[in-house]
C-alpha cells in the first residue's frame, strides 16, 4: 500500500498534469498532421483527381517511362559508388588513428551543407562548353553536362556522405577488439571484413543505403542544373514532375510524383523495420553474459 503511494508521488513529480499532457500531444499531432500528413495525402488525391484511368494513362506516357528509367539507372550507379566509398571511409576513420581525422570527417560531410544548385553548378563549370575541360571533351565528342553522366555525377555528389555518415559512428562505437581477435586467429583482411565487421554493421549499412537511394532518386536542384531538361532524354522523375506541373498537366505531374511519394513511404517503412531489428539485436546482445567486465 505505502509503496504504491510513494511511486505515485514520484510519478507526479516527473510528469505533467493530464490536461497539459493532452494539450501538448494535441498540439504536436496537429502540427504533424498539417505539415506532414496533409501534403502526403494531397499528392495522391491530386493524382487521382480525374479517376484511376487518367492516373494510369499519365504513367504510361513514353516520356514518363524514360524518366523512370533514367532515375533508376542514376540510382543504380550512384548508390553502389557511395556504398563502396562509405565502407572504405568508415574503415579508415573508425578503425585507425591518424592525423587530420577530424578534418577528413568534416570534409566527408561537406556535400550535405552545399546547396544542391551549387553542386550542379560546379560540374557545369568543369565539364560545360565554357568549362575547364569542356573544349577537350567536345573535341573528343564526349558529353557529360546536359547528358546522363552529368546527372549521375551530380547525384553522386549530393548523396556522397549518406552511407559513410551512418557507418562511421557505428563502427567507432564497436571498436576493433573483434577484428583483432579474428586476426589473431589467422583471418586475412577480407575474411575479417566479411565475417566479423559486416555482420556487425549490416543494419547500419541497409539504413544508409535506403536513405542514399531515396535521395538519389529524388534529387532535384543539382540534377536540374546539369540535365538541360531534354524531354525524353535527360529528364529524371523529379524533373519530369516539374515540366508537367509547369505545363499545367496537374494530374500527370502528381501521378509521377505519387510514385516518388510511394518510394518515400517505402523508405520510411524499411527504415523503421531496420531500426526495430537493430534494437532487437542490441537487446539480444545485452542479454549475453559479459565477456569483458572491465568495459
Amino acid at each position: 500500500m505505502s509503496s504504491t503511494q510513494t511511486s505515485r508521488r514520484t510519478q507526479a513529480g516527473t510528469t505533467e498534469p493530464a490536461w497539459v499532457k493532452w494539450t501538448l500531444i494535441a498540439l504536436a499531432l496537429s502540427f504533424i498532421f498539417l505539415f506532414l500528413i496533409l501534403p502526403l495525402a494531397a499528392v495522391f488525391t491530386e493524382a487521382l483527381r480525374k479517376g484511376f484511368g487518367a492516373y494510369l494513362d499519365a504513367l504510361q506516357e513514353p516520356d514518363a517511362w524514360t524518366a523512370i528509367r533514367l532515375t533508376l539507372i542514376t540510382a543504380a550507379i550512384a548508390v553502389p559508388l557511395n556504398l563502396v566509398f562509405g565502407v572504405a571511409a568508415a574503415w579508415a576513420i573508425a578503425k585507425f588513428e591518424f592525423r587530420g581525422k577530424a578534418f577528413l570527417t568534416t570534409l566527408v560531410d561537406l556535400p550535405f551543407s552545399v546547396s544542391p544548385v551549387v553542386a550542379g553548378l560546379v560540374y557545369v563549370l568543369l565539364f560545360g562548353a565554357h568549362g575547364w575541360i569542356g573544349p577537350w571533351l567536345q573535341a573528343h565528342d564526349i558529353k557529360i553536362v546536359f547528358a546522363v553522366p552529368g546527372i549521375v555525377l551530380a547525384t553522386v555528389f549530393v548523396t556522397f556522405p549518406f552511407i559513410a555518415r551512418e557507418l562511421i559512428p557505428l563502427m567507432q562505437a564497436q571498436g576493433t577488439e573483434e577484428e583483432q581477435a579474428a586476426m589473431v586467429l589467422g583471418a586475412n583482411g577480407w575474411q575479417i571484413f566479411w565475417h566479423v565487421t559486416l555482420p556487425n554493421i549490416k543494419w547500419g549499412l541497409v539504413y544508409g543505403v535506403i536513405l542514399c537511394n531515396a535521395r538519389a532518386m529524388g534529387e532535384f536542384g543539382a540534377v536540374s542544373v546539369v540535365s538541360g531538361h531534354i524531354r525524353g532524354q535527360t529528364n529524371t522523375m523529379p524533373l519530369h514532375v516539374e515540366i508537367l506541373y509547369n505545363e499545367y498537366q496537374s494530374v500527370a505531374a502528381f501521378a509521377v510524383a505519387s510514385l516518388l511519394a510511394l518510394l518515400a513511404v517505402l523508405t520510411l517503412l524499411i527504415k523503421s523495420a531496420v531500426e526495430w531489428q537493430f534494437e532487437r539485436d542490441q537487446k539480444a546482445a545485452a542479454l549475453l553474459p559479459p565477456e569483458n567486465p572491465g568495459r
Partner: peptide, 26 residues
C-alpha cells in the same frame, strides 16, 4: 506513436520537388 515517429523523417525521404508541388496544391 510509432507511425508518427516514423513519419517525422518524411521530409528526408520525400523528394523536394514533390514536397514543393504538394504544399503548393494545399
Amino acid at each position: 506513436k510509432k507511425v508518427i515517429d516514423a513519419l517525422v523523417d518524411l521530409p528526408f525521404a520525400l523528394p523536394t520537388a514533390v514536397a514543393g508541388i504538394a504544399l503548393t496544391a494545399l
